[in-house]
Design a binder for these strands. Structure first.
Lengths: 346, 346
DNA sequence: TGCTAGGTTGACAACGTTGTCATCCCCGGG
DNA sequence: CCCGGGGATGACAACGTTGTCAACCTAGCA
């Protein structure tokens, strides 16, 4: 590593096509043609331009280019996530990036953290930068404000949660079905008293999952018991406390279903604390990292964020390629991963 | 959700300042002044412009703006990561986003997956979009190619791994020191035969960590034993196999140090498989999600990606604000988190 | 030889915005 | 009453690029 101040030498403005043209002895338009690999430039001029580009370290200015271009495309898309650092979200992000990569498209991403205000601000900021398309995991419950973007020709795909008051492509997990299969799994092991831990009911997916729980109880002819349900839990600690509370009631549940990642962890911790993690069954929704290293391993209904991201990106790019057919709604199935905690009998 | 094709109504081009100006009966320049909240516009015109903006759903075009603007700032920065979906990377990403948010700056992020080619391509793509600054977790070992960007006035901060042949701000984990403290911890519990599992030696941090291991052995007067070392491991499975192999040698180590996240998990799995996870000590570098739920919990030297991201963003924005002082090199300490696996005596 | 078709090349305008500067108007002071 | 100054407003050019179109050149054919 050499020593010195970060900008050794003076700050020199980036060279433009004008300068490249001057050095190569051609017109700017010819430089533009070479840069964009348009046909119809003689080998002679082409190589002169290329060496001038090399010599000046010219970097194409995509900003100016997309401003002038007929289609106005910026080769950039926006991805709006709940929280970038969530394993689920970052996996989704990664899957989108992977497909974008093959098209030379970059990804602008941001977190909402359940703030509706932030959702509008972030999308406005993305629109200001004229992204070509949007993948949105929404926090708000009214997306009519997006009609403007839609009319401006910006395609958008909703992931994980559906849009409200707006028709658009969606890629969703089969939430209710996933929970129902999880409950069925527990019932098949002989459970009848199954507790439920749920996230904020304002989150669409959380509401759908709880719905699935209720539906499956009815389907199984199990009477509902409000004392077995704890909703609007946020984070591991709340879930742990709620679980401890739930288990102190008489008669306690013989199994638990946790409607979300962090709640599953909280519930597991509570069971461990009470020393009954080998006695009370537990199934969680959404996979838990390292769930298989635990003893017992945590049984989950796993979502497939990579598949969701891939599907969302595919839909988005299809729209960018001009597809105008009616909105598509993809449902990605959950997968039961039995690791032990869900296979405990009462 | 309403029914219909995604673009109900025709695709209508976005309104421009020209149209806003026409509707408000003022000049474009006045619209520009209002949009940018420049002083010196009468309340009368200001409100006429604002209602025209409202009526037309005008969205400022930051692309055109930054093209014309004197400073040429795009209010966008680039973040180059090893793999976006890694918990470490996504935490770092998030911390940067958090600070960027307060300045109205958006983040373009991408993954390298250890590809030097990809590093150059991605950074070129970011430079094309005229990002205001870069945070880079590099894969390559020669960054002299970045001198062009540097000269063009793009500040850059390297995180997690240092640049080569280029002087720039850095934010690094104290790798060697972290490993040395981890080894010392094992020694303090009576271990003398300590195995080491390391990632690709081409990765700078991996090399530094191994260095720390060797140094601490010397400092402790423990003779090195090549049979206790397995380097260039990639991923959980390789680490698991290497651990099984390592333990089959006579005499086997009484403790293991794993130089990376996935290797720690692989080693733990191997110990579990052999049923000796309560007999052989294990310390890992970098935290393992849910490491505290395991039995025994996994003892680690934890890095602090959030602090690193924050530091990197602070440095970058300080440069963006005009700071031209010599490069700064921040070192973020690791933290020993004792959870059980590292506190087993031989 | 003359003419045309086709392929190269470049001059110029335009994309949507902001910097510069001129103009205009009003108010206050001489 | 006139003039100067300052604040509000707008006309115009420019940012770096690409679309359009005209000019030019060469080869091929009548």
């Amino acid at each position: 590593m050499t020593k010195g101040v970060p900008d050794e030498g003076q700050t020199r403005a980036r060279p433009t096509m004008r300068e490249v043209a001057a050095l190569a002895g051609v017109s700017v338009k010819t430089v533009s043609r070479v840069i964009n690999a348009e046909p119809g430039v003689s080998a002679e001029l082409s190589s002169r331009v290329n060496s001038a580009v090399e010599r000046l370290d010219y970097r194409h200015n995509l900003t100016a280019s997309s401003l002038r271009r007929a289609d106005g495309k910026s080769a950039t898309i926006g991805v709006v996530l709940e929280y970038i650092a969530n394993p689920f979200d970052s996996m989704l992000h990664r899957a989108i990036e992977d497909l974008a990569l093959t098209r030379g498209v970059l990804v602008l991403a941001g977190s909402l953290e359940e703030s509706e205000t932030r959702e509008r601000e972030l999308i406005a900021a993305l629109a200001s930068r004229r992204v070509d398309g949007l993948v949105i995991m929404p926090a708000s419950h009214d997306h009519s404000y997006l009609l403007t973007e839609r009319r401006a020709g910006t395609p958008m795909v909703f992931v994980d949660r559906p849009p409200a008051f707006l028709d658009a492509d969606t890629v969703l997990t089969d939430n209710a079905d996933g929970v129902r299969r999880g409950i069925r799994h527990l019932v098949s092991y002989g459970h009848r008293r199954i507790g439920y831990l749920g996230d904020l009911q304002t989150i669409t997916t959380a509401a759908l999952r709880y719905q699935g729980y209720l539906e499956e109880l009815v389907a199984q002819g199990i009477p509902g018991d409000e004392r077995l349900t704890r909703l609007n839990l946020r984070g591991t600690e709340r879930a742990e406390a709620a679980t401890l509370d739930l288990l102190s009631k008489q008669p306690p549940p013989t199994a638990l279903f946790a409607g979300q990642n962090l709640l599953t962890i909280g519930a597991y911790q509570a069971l461990r604390r009470l020393g009954i993690h080998h006695k009370i069954a537990l199934v969680g929704f959404d996979d838990v990292p390292l769930g298989d290293l635990l003893e017992p391993g945590i049984t989950v209904m796993a979502q497939d964020p990579a598949a969701m991201g891939r599907a969302a990106a595919e839909l988005l790019f299809r729209r960018l390629d001009g597809d105008r057919s009616p909105s598509v709604h993809r449902v990605i199935a959950t997968r039961l991963i039995a690791r032990g905690s869900g296979e405990i009998r009462p």
